[in-house]
């Protein structure tokens, strides 16, 4: 690979690898599988760098969207009931306790505060879906509410989060 490409990818790795590994770990749980998925995601970023389109969102969103999709695909392909229950328990952690589990981080603090501003149903829908890897139908049956309600709560929750986090488009 050309020198400039290597430099650029090296730099990109330093910027995004922790977010990619973090979200993959949260969803996949298993450390060895998480490393595998993280490596696949970063290589996919490398291969498809030309497809990145700044008009359609930030580079970080492009990368983390890919990471989350691949992590979810991985857990759904090996979904087992026991594993699923374990993940329900862990999916809810981020709002309450994750702060002391890992080093202090401004971004984490801000996200925690914004999750705290959601209604309970919104927050549970988001954490089960995004961190737990569940579909909205699964979330609906876990929470005992209609599918349609969960769908709209998810959308409302993300809009509120987006505004709370000060995301500029």
């Amino acid at each position: 690979m050309a020198r400039g490409d290597a430099d650029a990818f090296d730099f990109l790795y330093d910027q995004v690898a922790a977010s990619v590994f973090g979200i993959v770990r949260r969803v996949v749980r298993d450390p060895a599988q998480s490393e595998e998925v993280t490596q696949d995601v970063l290589l996919e970023v490398w291969r498809n760098a030309a497809k990145f389109d700044a008009e359609r969102g930030s580079a970080t969103a492009w990368v983390t969207t890919l990471a989350h999709r691949r992590a979810v695909d991985r857990v759904r392909s090996v979904q087992k009931e026991a594993d699923r229950e374990r993940r329900i328990a862990t999916a809810v952690i981020p709002y309450d306790e994750v702060a002391e589990a890992v080093e202090a981080n401004l971004e984490r603090e801000r996200v925690r505060r914004c999750l705290g501003s959601l209604t309970e149903l919104q927050r549970e829908s988001v954490t089960l879906a995004y961190y737990g890897g569940y579909t909205y139908n699964q979330v609906a049956s876990l929470l005992g509410v209609p599918d349609g309600t969960v769908k709209t709560r998810m959308r409302d929750a993300l809009i509120r989060l987006r505004d709370c986090l000060g995301v500029s488009e």
């Binding site: 977010s19 979200i23 930030s58 969103a61 996200v111 989060l161 987006r162």
Partner: peptide
């Protein structure tokens, strides 16, 4: 852009 921040956290 919001879910990306959930990942960054």
């Amino acid at each position: 852009e919001a879910t990306s921040r959930l990942a960054a956290a």
